[in-house]
């Protein structure tokens, strides 16, 4: 196998590794929200222990990227593939951590969450999950337009975040006994909002990867 061909294979394998990690993170987010909405502590635990695999994958793939830079000294698009790869890895790893945060919150509220307090959290979670999915789809297909559309969804998520935040606070004012529980829901909305921001970061990375230009979309 020629030198260049070998390098191409390694770059393709890098993309596969990133997608593997992306799939794990998508699953973690989904399971964490399930754990919260269905009050399922076992599923929450699953998410928390599952994060080790995500972290391990991140370090493996990242050191692989550094090795590629050191041994192949890539330029132009090849360099962009590796650099955005590292950035997406970091974003994914942080997203995995947010999923763990949500799972921890789910464990804390388990069994005593007032259903009414949930408000628009399921709706917000659906949008965030869609953003993550679209962002990763944009990465798979190198689709700049998809990345842009996905990033635009962040505004809606922010809007729901503000509304939910306000209504949770007024819920706590009216039901002071529920404060220990609803505080965790406040945190969950915050984590969801951060997840959406991370998804936007991935969208920006995709645009840089394809066009070679940085665009602030957040």
């Amino acid at each position: 196998m020629s030198y260049r061909r070998n390098f191409d294979v390694e770059l393709a394998e890098l993309k596969q590794d990133i997608l593997r990690m992306a799939s794990l993170v998508e699953q973690s987010i989904y399971k964490a929200m399930e754990a919260l909405l269905k009050q399922d502590p076992l599923m929450a635990k699953d998410v928390i222990t599952g994060d080790d695999v995500v972290d391990r994958l991140r370090y493996e793939v990242e050191s692989n990227c550094i090795r590629l830079i050191a041994t192949q000294q890539p330029i132009a698009r090849d360099l962009r593939v590796i650099v955005t790869g590292i950035k997406i890895l970091i974003n994914l790893e942080r997203m995995g951590d947010h999923a763990v945060d949500i799972a921890r919150a789910a464990m804390c509220v388990c069994g005593r969450m007032p259903a009414k307090a949930l408000e628009k959290i399921p709706e917000m979670a659906r949008r965030v999950q869609l953003m993550v999915k679209e962002g990763l789809d944009a990465y798979v297909h190198g689709d700049v337009e998809k990345a842009r559309v996905m990033c635009a969804m962040d505004d809606e998520v922010d809007e729901i975040y503000n509304l939910t935040f306000q209504s949770l606070i007024s819920y706590m004012e009216q039901n002071p006994h529920s404060i220990p529980c609803v505080v965790y829901l406040l945190l969950v909305t915050r984590y969801l909002e951060r997840l959406a921001d991370r998804a936007t970061n991935i969208g920006e990375d995709v645009i840089y990867l394809v066009t070679g230009e940085w665009q602030e979309l957040n």
Binding site: K15, Q16, L19, R20, A22, S23, L24, E26, L136, V140
Partner: peptide, 13 residues
């Protein structure tokens, strides 16, 4: 495309 690109699922891959 690889199966991971088409159906992004860690376990399926």
């Amino acid at each position: 495309k690889t199966v991971l690109e088409v159906v992004r699922d860690y376990d399926l891959d």
